[in-house]
């Protein structure tokens, strides 16, 4: 059904898109987003659509959806599988409708989402051992690129995302670090080769 979601100029549509990873979906995030508390916050903040990319965890999504149904009201909730073609269509919809993306902390998803200049909430999977997800999310939050969210408190992150839109740092960074020169990778390649023409 989400294939028919379309944004038009002046519509009141506001989409929240949740992406949970391809290989090992972050099931706790799916459950958390569909909790009563999160649903209430989404409605309070004026969201009209909630789209969950559940990957291979369809059963988790459907179970949680049953419980969320009574709270949803006019919030439209739908789920999609993992799309190997990427999530550009969904991210574009969020961007157009001035919504929010909630993502697992995989670097691929973070990089894809950041290019759309929409508030991005990144939720590290604390159940994974020996990973650098939290480190990255915290560092990116500190630099103002995104919001680091807690899996047990999605509402707080959603609240923060409302004011975040106005003050978020553009990505890829135009300048970063303090009083230092930055270079693009293309420039570093030329420099390594000695190409200065």
């Amino acid at each position: 059904m989400s294939e028919h979601w379309a944004w038009s100029e002046g519509s009141a549509m506001k989409v929240c898109f949740v992406t949970t990873g391809a290989t090992a979906p972050f099931t706790a995030l799916i459950e958390s987003v569909l909790q009563t508390d999160s649903i209430k916050t989404l409605r309070k903040l004026g969201y009209t659509h909630l789209l969950v990319q559940y990957g291979s965890a369809r059963n988790v999504f459907e179970e949680s959806l049953k419980a969320a149904h009574s709270e949803a009201g006019d919030l439209v909730i739908a789920g999609i599988d993992f799309d190997p073609q990427g999530l550009d269509k969904q991210l574009k919809l969020v961007s157009d409708s001035k919504g929010t993306i909630i993502s697992h902390a995989g670097s691929g998803s973070i990089l894809a989402a950041l290019r759309y200049q929409v508030p991005l909430i990144v939720v590290p999977n604390t159940q994974l051992l020996d990973n650098h997800q939290s480190e990255l999310a915290i560092a990116m939050d500190k630099s103002g690129y995104l919001i680091e969210g807690q899996v047990n408190n999605i509402s707080a992150a959603l609240d923060r995302s409302e004011t975040f839109r106005a003050k978020m740092t553009t990505f890829p960074p135009i300048t970063s670090g303090k009083h230092r020169e930055t270079k693009s990778f293309a420039a570093i390649m030329d420099e390594t080769m000695g190409f200065l023409d």
Binding site: T23, G106, S107, G108, E191, M193, G194, F195, L196, D197
Partner: peptide, 24 residues
């Protein structure tokens, strides 16, 4: 490295790896 004009043709080798590395 001494600055120079780029040769008419330059070959580069790009090593790809599993999902995340390739993506980056």
């Amino acid at each position: 490295k001494a600055p120079r004009k780029a040769a008419p043709a330059t070959r580069i080798l790009i090593v790809l790896g599993s999902g995340g590395h390739t993506h980056e």
